[in-house]
Design a protein around this nucleic acid. Structure first.
Lengths: 296, 296
DNA sequence: TCGTAATGATATGCATAGCGTATCAAAAAC
DNA sequence: GTTTTTGATACGCTATGCATATCATTACGA
């Protein structure tokens, strides 16, 4: 017994006429008669009484009509559900992102596009620092991670979404806050620094260390903090200077001034990271949209 | 998409191994791979991830596994239910019978056999006189009627189950009750009669009338009643004599004596009647059992 | 590091299931 | 009685699904 058999039977049972049913099914009448006959033989009893040029359902046929409709409807439903899920039109997409990412316009824009295009996908955003995204990505608890540049295990793959300049964060009342002209890292390094503690897990700290070490500079850290907002607040209070990606300029706090860095390599990257092999269709679509957004 | 496809997919999803699944299905591995591939193309998304010599389900595949199992189970159930019903192993059987029929051993015996053999058939017995069985039989409200010989419309078909002699029912205190020897109808007709009213609808009245008319006899009816038990009671009270099929001897009432009738044609028939064309399998089985019981 | 085993994918040929055309048989309608 | 309707039957063909042979990739062991 196959679904085709059920479709044929339902057609005959509804039309109560073999030729009309065959026309509706787009086949000719003889094979339809044969299939119904075979079905009756398989079930071991008559489903239809063909008498006096009139076709009628037996009790068994009436029952089978209900059952066959039910089976067909379930099969149809299964196909529809799985098709949508498999095409990435439903299901879920879990994205990890760092604090700084919402400040760039790329992510909010792409998320908006994605939600418009795939409104039935359950989008789950998890704010996690770069380090803390790695394990969930490896274990399949996150589909996509958006993070600052970091050292990744080989099972993860990444590409650059954004490459943005670093800017000095200085107190407007201080000596360095008197101007808006570019500063060199060497100049900045003369000042007391407020920066992330290693426990904050941000990829920015690595970039920070590398940049200064390459120049033989060792800035004096007066305060280690957990998040960028704290950094900016402490700079506002005059505790020291700092160095952050340009997108943090969007955070306006009294007494804080952002100055460009003259060093050409003072840049930070935002990465899109994912486990290497089996990307879900939802993740593929998201990445596709991100790439299109970058291309603009 | 066919049920076969679903069976194949379930096998692969359960084994997570194409070759083992193919072995379980009794086919070779290549066609299995092809069918799964075709299924994935039809649904428009991957159901399985074949990676690193390991097969795993995607989210869509996990959903489809549940759905496919459900569809297959429903199809299986439909097949089982309808098969039983179509084979006459379940469903119902509606039998009409007259008052006198339970007195013969044939019907109780056959019913017992039928219930043993087809315990899941809902057997509905309706006590109805011969006339009142005809309409339900014609309209499909009864499958089988068991009745005394009657004139039937051509849409009904019948055969004889029992042919039994008639016996005289006489009062033990009366002149005719003094002996057990055979009586002729002519002798009996000299006595006042207790018999069925036409409203009782029994086929016995027809037979009664025919028998006496053929002999030019017109017995004097002193009382018309509705049922055989009343006849016997009234005979017991001395109101008159009567004529009933032999099986009524099973009703023992004080002061009633049954005497054989010497006329060879003084016989009554019990018929099994049914609508001509589409007998339900349940009715066919019942008739089969009755015929076997008669053959013994 | 290289060879070997395991495993799914691909290529190709064949058998059969299912379809179409032609025709029959029975019954109803005129 | 003739014609029409309609499901069943006969028969040939095609396409689907299967088997055999082989390939490609990867993991594993020496």
């Amino acid at each position: 017994m196959e679904l085709r058999t059920l479709r044929y039977f339902v057609a005959v049972a509804e039309e109560l006429h073999f030729s009309r049913a065959a026309a509706r099914l787009g086949i000719s009448q003889p094979p339809l008669s044969q299939q119904i006959k075979a079905l009756e033989e398989e079930l071991g009893g008559r489903l239809l009484v063909r008498t006096n040029r009139r076709v009628a359902l037996t009790a068994a046929g009436t029952l089978f009509l209900d059952e066959a409709r039910e089976v067909l409807a379930r099969a149809e439903r299964a196909s529809r559900l799985v098709s949508r899920l498999g095409r990435g039109e439903s299901g879920q997409l879990r994205i990890g992102f760092t604090t700084s990412v919402p400040l760039t316009s790329l992510l909010p824009r792409t998320l908006m596009h994605y939600r418009q295009r795939y409104p039935d996908v359950d989008l789950r955003m998890h704010e996690l620092n770069s380090q803390r995204q790695i394990t969930p990505l490896l274990e399949g608890d996150l589909d996509i991670g958006i993070m600052r540049r970091a050292t990744l295990p080989p099972e993860l793959s990444a590409f650059t979404l954004i490459r943005e300049p670093l800017v000095a964060v200085v107190n407007a009342q201080s000596e360095l806050g008197a101007s808006d002209t570019p500063l060199s890292l060497a100049e900045l390094a003369t000042q007391p620094f407020v920066y992330f503690s290693p426990a904050a897990g941000t990829g920015l700290l690595d970039q920070f260390n590398v940049l200064f070490a390459q120049r033989g500079l060792t800035p004096r850290l007066v305060q280690e903090v957990g998040g960028p907002n704290t950094i900016i607040s402490l700079v506002a209070s005059g505790l020291g200077v700092s160095l952050l990606p340009e997108s943090f300029r969007h955070i306006h706090i009294d007494n804080v001034r952002y100055r460009p860095i003259s060093d050409a390599d003072a840049r930070s990257e935002v990465w899109l990271t994912h486990a290497r092999h089996p990307l879900t269709p939802q993740a593929q679509h998201f990445i596709q949209l991100v790439r299109e957004a970058i291309a603009d």
